[in-house]
Structures are given as structure tokens and as C-alpha cells.
């Protein structure tokens, strides 16, 4: 429980720091606000639009990290593969490709809104993700059913390969202006969104993450093979349906919020598994994992906005940069303990 509280507090502090800092603010200004300097605080109270923008940004980073980390853990358990991540079944690639295709076909697509606040891009992302899911199911049931769970990864491999080829083709046909707009997004960076849009996206992301966390016990049983899980009372078919549908929501919403951010879903489950390896974490490990993911993504997002101004590098770069040495250190320490 102490670890849980510690993670929550550090996440909260990071969020506050992240809210205050950004390319438009220098570190001394941040310090002045933190020190309670009244003109600096007043500046913030008067500049609520900047604050709202950042609040939306930080909320998205938090939710994306939460969702991707729990999605990564779920996929690693489900596919019994330590190299799995939420993008492995190709749902993110499907939604990214459909969005790019729409932008290519209708140049005004990125600026189109339904009901004035739902971007058309989101609809395309959900449809793309759903199409990819249909394809995965077709491959699973039609072609390679006898391979069992491994065939899901194979289906994902097919989609990922096909979609990345398609994306390259689309990149070649896009106008330079549109290209520069979408490139950062496809590499994975938190997109600017209004607060009302965030209020729609964030609950969906959190919902899919929480569903995957709630199903952690049957998923851990599945990591010993589907036969073991079936013999111990898990309905594997229903489990696969729940997992893939929440993964579809997860992929579509994270793509809307940030493109496909790499490494979070892959590295955070390993990191949390190593840090919280004690038995007394067994019950809350999936929650700690998700919180760690949220913390890392908020931190990575803070880095990407402040370290290399005015250029904003993709968040995925910093998640890898932050978590790789940390994971290495943890692994190294565990080896010396043994």
C-alpha cells in the first residue's frame, strides 16, 4: 500500500510541475509560482486558456500512460510473450492508417467535426481499429485457428506489416504541409485537444485500462496456457472477446490522443514486474503497473515539451530514453541480489 501511495503522490507532483511548465514558460517562472510569488501566481490565474490547454495535455498524457501500460501487461500475459505490447495485434496500426487515408482523400478531413466537438479523425480511428479487429478475428477463426493464441500475434504481424507499407505510400502522396502535421502524430506525441474533447477521450481510455486490470487474475492464469486457464474455470473465449474489445477502445482512443506511442506498453510491464516483485504486491500489481505507466508518460511528456524547445520530440523517444536505463538498472540490481 505504501508503494501505491508513493506512486500516487509522485504522479500528482509531476502533474503539477507539468501543468506549470512548457515551452512558453521558463524554469524561473515555474519556480516563482512554486515559491508562492504573488505576481507569478496572478499571471496564472489570469491566463486560464494556457492553463486549460496544459490541463488537457497532462490529463491526456496521464490517461494514455495508464491505458498503454495496462494494455501492455494484458497482452504480455494473454499472448504468453514478454515482447508483446498493445500495438502487437495491429489495432493501432489499423486506426492510424485509416486516419491517414482519410486525410489523403479529403484534405479538409483533419478540420472536420461532428456535432461541433467530435473530430472526424476520431471516428476514422475507431472504424480503423474495428476493421483491424475484424481482420484479426477472421485470421484467427479462418486460417490459423489450430495455432491457438499465437495466431493472434501472427494476424497482428500481418496487419502491422501491411499498414506500415500503406502508411509509407500515403506519406509519399501527402502534401508537405499535411505531412509535417501528421508525422509527429504517427510517431507518437500528445496532441493538442480542447478540454471538452479530453472529457470524452479520457474516460474511455481509463475505462479500457480498468477493464484490463479487473481481468488480471484470469489473464495471469492464461499466461500458463489456455488449457490451464480452462481447467481452472476461465472462459477463454469470453476472455478473448473482452480483452480484444477493450483493446480496440484502448488503441483507438490512444491513437486519437497521441498517435501510437511506443515502448510504454512494452517496457512498463517489465519494469513494474521487477520493481514490485514481492508477494504482497500480487493483488495490486496491475494497478501499480498502470500508475507507473501514467507517471512515466507524464514525465516523458514534460521532457518532450521542455528539454528541446522549440522542437518537440515524440514522447515515445523519451519514454524509451527514461525507461531503458531504469529497467537495465533494476535488472542489474536484481542479478547482484541473487
Amino acid at each position: 500500500m505504501r508503494a501505491f501511495i508513493f506512486l500516487c503522490i509522485s504522479l500528482l507532483l509531476l502533474c503539477m510541475l507539468s501543468l506549470l511548465s512548457g515551452p512558453a514558460t521558463t524554469w524561473s517562472e515555474v519556480w516563482n509560482v512554486l515559491a508562492g510569488d504573488s505576481p507569478a501566481v496572478e499571471f496564472w490565474i489570469n491566463n486560464s486558456s494556457l492553463f486549460e490547454l496544459r490541463l488537457a495535455h497532462v490529463t491526456l498524457a496521464l490517461c494514455v500512460g495508464f491505458a498503454l501500460a495496462s494494455g501492455g501487461r494484458a497482452m504480455q500475459l494473454f499472448l504468453q510473450n514478454p515482447l508483446a505490447d498493445p500495438h502487437i495485434v495491429g489495432l493501432s496500426a489499423g486506426s492510424t492508417t485509416l486516419v491517414l487515408l482519410c486525410i489523403l482523400l479529403w484534405p479538409s478531413f483533419a478540420a472536420t467535426y461532428f456535432f461541433d466537438f467530435i473530430p472526424a479523425i476520431w471516428i476514422a480511428a475507431f472504424v480503423g481499429s474495428a476493421l483491424a479487429l475484424v481482420f484479426v478475428q477472421l485470421v484467427f477463426f479462418g486460417v490459423v485457428r489450430r495455432w491457438g493464441i499465437a495466431s493472434l500475434a501472427l494476424a497482428g504481424l500481418l496487419i502491422n506489416a501491411g499498414c506500415s507499407a500503406l502508411m509509407m505510400l500515403i506519406f509519399a502522396r501527402l502534401s508537405p504541409a499535411a505531412l509535417s502535421q501528421v508525422q509527429a502524430w504517427t510517431l507518437g506525441s500528445i496532441q493538442p485537444h480542447s478540454l471538452s474533447a479530453v472529457a470524452l477521450l479520457a474516460p474511455l481510455m481509463l475505462f479500457s485500462g480498468v477493464v484490463l486490470i479487473r481481468f488480471d487474475t484470469p489473464l495471469r492464469m492464461l499466461s500458463f496456457g489456455s488449457e490451464f486457464a480452462i481447467a481452472n474455470g476461465v472462459n477463454v473465449k469470453r476472455m478473448r472477446f473482452v480483452l480484444l474489445s477493450s483493446l480496440m477502445i484502448l488503441c483507438a482512443t490512444t491513437v486519437c490522443a497521441s498517435g501510437s506511442v511506443g515502448f510504454v506498453g512494452l517496457l512498463i510491464p517489465h519494469l513494474s514486474r521487477r520493481i514490485f516483485f514481492h508477494d504482497h504486491f500480487a493483488g495490486i500489481r496491475p494497478w501499480l503497473n498502470a500508475l507507473l505507466g501514467a507517471t512515466l508518460l507524464v514525465l516523458a511528456d514534460l521532457c518532450s515539451r521542455t528539454l528541446t524547445t522549440p522542437i518537440e520530440l515524440p514522447v515515445g523517444v523519451y519514454t524509451a530514453l527514461l525507461s531503458t536505463p531504469f529497467l537495465f538498472l533494476v535488472l542489474f540490481r536484481q542479478r547482484s541480489v541473487q
Binding site: 510473450n81 495471469r220 500458463f224 486457464a229 480452462i230 481447467a231 474455470g233 472462459n235
Partner: peptide
């Protein structure tokens, strides 16, 4: 194969068991 055999009172131990998640 819907996982109901256990609640019916059937216990099964397979020959091999793959361990991917260390605990």
C-alpha cells in the same frame, strides 16, 4: 471448454505446463 468443468467438480492436471510469467 468454457471453464465450467471445475465448478462441476472436475480437476485436471496436464502433462506439461509452460511458465511465462514468473511468480
Amino acid at each position: 471448454n468454457s471453464g465450467e468443468m471445475l465448478s462441476r467438480g472436475v480437476s485436471w492436471l496436464g502433462q506439461h505446463q509452460h511458465v511465462s510469467e514468473d511468480m
